[in-house]
Simulated scan of single mutants.
Amino acid sequence: MRETVKEGNSFVVKDNGEMVAEITYKPAAKDMIVIDHTYVSPAMRGQKLAEDLVRRVVEHAREANKMVVPSCSYAHAQFKRHNEYQDVWKRDQ
C-alpha cells in the first residue's frame, strides 16, 4: 500500500512502509519556505511521485500563507512548468 505522509519539514511517499520518495523544505523566514531536496528511488521513477510531492508542498504553503523558494532543481523546473504555482513562487527581486 502506498501512502504520502508529512514528517516534520518533509512529505514522504511510503510503499508498504518503506520510503520510496521524499521532498524536504526548510523555513527561510516567517512567511517563506525553501524546497531544498527531492528524491525518488530509481525503481519508482516515472510515476509522477516527485511532481505530486511538489504539489503537496505548494498546497501546504498556501494553507500556511507562505511563499516558496524552489531551490531544488527539480522543484524549480516544476514551478516553471505550472502556472498554478505562481501565487506562491517567491522569486528573486
Score class of each variant (00 low, 15 high):
1 M>C: 11
1 M>E: 07
1 M>D: 06
2 R>W: 12
2 R>D: 10
3 E>W: 10
4 T>D: 09
4 T>L: 05
5 V>I: 08
6 K>P: 15
6 K>N: 04
7 E>L: 09
8 G>Y: 09
8 G>T: 06
8 G>E: 04
9 N>V: 04
9 N>I: 08
11 F>Q: 01
11 F>W: 06
12 V>A: 03
12 V>W: 08
12 V>P: 02
13 V>Y: 03
14 K>D: 04
14 K>Y: 07
14 K>W: 05
15 D>I: 12
15 D>R: 05
16 N>R: 12
16 N>S: 08
17 G>H: 09
17 G>S: 06
17 G>K: 08
17 G>F: 07
18 E>Y: 14
18 E>T: 10
18 E>S: 10
18 E>C: 12
19 M>C: 14
19 M>R: 15
20 V>K: 04
20 V>Y: 13
21 A>E: 05
22 E>Y: 13
22 E>F: 13
23 I>N: 00
23 I>F: 00
24 T>H: 14
24 T>R: 15
24 T>D: 06
24 T>V: 11
25 Y>T: 05
25 Y>N: 06
26 K>R: 13
26 K>G: 05
28 A>H: 14
29 A>V: 13
29 A>Y: 14
29 A>S: 13
30 K>C: 15
31 D>M: 14
32 M>K: 15
33 I>Q: 07
33 I>D: 13
35 I>F: 00
36 D>Q: 12
37 H>D: 06
37 H>K: 02
38 T>Q: 01
39 Y>F: 03
40 V>P: 08
40 V>T: 08
41 S>Y: 04
41 S>W: 05
42 P>V: 08
42 P>S: 08
43 A>C: 09
44 M>T: 10
45 R>T: 13
46 G>V: 02
46 G>W: 09
47 Q>A: 06
47 Q>T: 11
47 Q>S: 02
47 Q>C: 04
48 K>R: 10
48 K>T: 00
49 L>T: 15
51 E>R: 00
51 E>F: 00
51 E>P: 03
52 D>K: 06
52 D>G: 05
52 D>F: 11
52 D>N: 10
52 D>W: 12
53 L>N: 03
53 L>Y: 02
55 R>E: 04
55 R>I: 06
57 V>T: 05
58 V>P: 14
60 H>C: 07
60 H>V: 10
60 H>A: 02
60 H>Y: 12
61 A>Q: 01
62 R>V: 02
62 R>H: 03
63 E>L: 03
63 E>I: 04
64 A>R: 06
65 N>V: 12
66 K>C: 10
67 M>Q: 08
70 P>H: 01
70 P>R: 00
72 C>N: 10
73 S>E: 11
73 S>C: 11
74 Y>I: 00
76 H>C: 05
77 A>T: 06
77 A>Y: 09
77 A>H: 09
77 A>P: 02
78 Q>R: 09
78 Q>P: 15
79 F>W: 03
79 F>I: 01
80 K>D: 01
80 K>V: 13
81 R>G: 02
83 N>R: 02
83 N>Y: 14
84 E>F: 04
84 E>D: 09
84 E>P: 07
85 Y>E: 00
85 Y>Q: 01
85 Y>I: 00
86 Q>D: 10
87 D>L: 13
87 D>I: 11
89 W>P: 10
90 K>P: 15
90 K>N: 13
90 K>V: 10
91 R>N: 12
91 R>P: 15
91 R>Y: 15
93 Q>I: 12
